[in-house]
Computed example of a mutant assay.
Amino acid sequence: MKRPPVSILRRGLGALALAALTLPAVAATLPSRAVLSGGCCPGAVWTPDSRALLFLDGPPARATTGIYQVPAAGGTVTRRFSSVAYFSPALRWAVRPGPGEATTLERLADGRRFTLPTYGADVAWTRAETRLAYVRSATTGNFDRRATRVFVADVFGAPRQVASLTGGSLHGWLNDTTLLLSGKPSAQARDRELFTLDVRSGARRVLRQALNFRSVTASPDGRFVAYTVAFDSAARNGLWVQESAGGAPRELSTFGSYRWRDARRLLLIPLNAAGGPHELRQYDAAARTWATLGDLGDQVRSSDWSVSPDGRQLHYLSARDGNVRVLALP
């Protein structure tokens, strides 16, 4: 048989090499370890130093009800707080709802306290935890037409109202002076606005309009905002990332459960209706690129997962056995 010319062989090998480079890499299973077993405990959260997980537990597994702690590497469970409260992200404050409108906020370093009329609701803290925000909403009527008042306060200071929303929500602080909010401009309006509010000047910047916004979350530095639009038009539905300073929103090609890893990287577990292990993907909001980090070899139960504050670890509640598992992120 006559051999093909060398030039053709070279072109063929080059094409094969190019095809190999463009094929998606097969995701490896990310190794994880169980740090809590026996179906304990949903809703675990990371400590600020990323070294442990906090969780609520009590009898019969524990002698008393409280907030317990387990090392991220696994090991002995210890009780961190003897009382149940909302704790601030940096664990500087305990927010303790009372039987009426008054909620007590206690600085854990010295036990100093003050009260706010939140009617049992938690508060949103700035990163320095020197200022907070909370909302007061009507308790009856159609939610789309309920009035929601937004208040801010410095610690140990009196609250002041900074906004009134219709069918609205507080999504947190972008920085020490700017809130991220959503709500309808009027009770008769169809669409809500996702917008920023400078609590000093009152300046508003509308980022997007849609029927509703779900799972709104800002990057740790407040530069980017991720959100989902559903049950709207085909052009609006989907998962979006947008800069909080404004600009056009970008629709992501993959939809699922998402958390910020750091100031620019968004981790996402794609919706998997076919079953099988959940995959972990990463979107770089600044570079606008995707990477597949691997699969869990498992599924996450009820979207119960979170990223450590240092961005190096992930915890999730296993759908397979109900254990809380921790893995190191690539």
Score class of each variant (00 low, 15 high):
Met1Arg: 11
Lys2Phe: 07
Ile8Tyr: 08
Arg10Lys: 11
Leu13Phe: 14
Ala15Tyr: 08
Ala15Arg: 07
Leu16Ala: 14
Leu16Glu: 02
Val26Asn: 11
Ala28Gln: 15
Ala28Leu: 12
Ala28Ser: 15
Leu30Val: 08
Ser32Thr: 10
Ser32Pro: 01
Arg33Met: 10
Val35Asp: 03
Ser37Cys: 08
Ser37Glu: 15
Gly38Asp: 04
Cys40Val: 12
Gly43His: 05
Ala44Thr: 15
Asp49Leu: 04
Ala52Trp: 00
Leu56Asp: 10
Asp57Gly: 15
Arg62Ile: 09
Ala63Asp: 14
Thr64Asp: 14
Gly66Thr: 12
Ile67Thr: 14
Ile67Arg: 09
Gln69Asn: 03
Pro71Phe: 02
Pro71Leu: 01
Ala73Asn: 15
Ala73Gly: 15
Gly74Leu: 06
Thr78Asp: 11
Thr78Arg: 13
Ser82His: 05
Ala90Asn: 15
Leu91Ala: 09
Arg92Met: 10
Val95Cys: 07
Arg96Ile: 15
Pro99Asn: 06
Pro99Asp: 10
Pro99Glu: 09
Gly100Tyr: 01
Arg107Ser: 05
Tyr119Lys: 10
Tyr119Pro: 06
Trp125Gly: 08
Ala133Thr: 13
Val135Met: 11
Ser137Asn: 02
Thr140Glu: 14
Asp144Glu: 11
Arg145Met: 12
Thr166Ser: 08
Asn175Val: 07
Asp176Trp: 04
Thr177Trp: 06
Thr178Ser: 12
Leu180Phe: 11
Gly183Ile: 10
Ala189Trp: 04
Leu197Gly: 08
Val199Arg: 05
Gly202Ser: 08
Arg204Asp: 00
Arg208Asn: 14
Ala210His: 02
Leu211Trp: 07
Phe213Ala: 00
Gly222His: 01
Arg223Gly: 00
Ala226Trp: 03
Thr228Pro: 00
Val229Leu: 06
Ala234Glu: 13
Arg236Cys: 04
Arg236Leu: 13
Trp240Gly: 02
Gln242Tyr: 04
Ser244Ile: 05
Gly246Cys: 01
Arg250Phe: 05
Glu251Asp: 06
Leu252Ser: 11
Leu252Arg: 07
Ser253Lys: 13
Thr254Ile: 14
Phe255Glu: 14
Gly256Arg: 09
Asp262Trp: 02
Leu266Cys: 09
Leu266Phe: 10
Leu271Pro: 04
Leu271Ile: 12
Asn272Glu: 09
Arg281Met: 12
Asp284Ala: 07
Asp284Phe: 07
Ala285Met: 03
Thr289Ala: 15
Trp290Val: 06
Ala291Ile: 01
Gly294Leu: 08
Gly297Asp: 02
Gly297Glu: 03
Val300Trp: 00
Arg301Leu: 14
Ser303Pro: 01
Ser306Gly: 15
Pro309Met: 00
Asp310Tyr: 08
Leu314Ala: 12
Leu314Ile: 12
Asp321Arg: 04
Asn323His: 13
Val324Gly: 01
Val324Arg: 09
Arg325Ser: 05
Arg325His: 01
Leu329Ile: 06
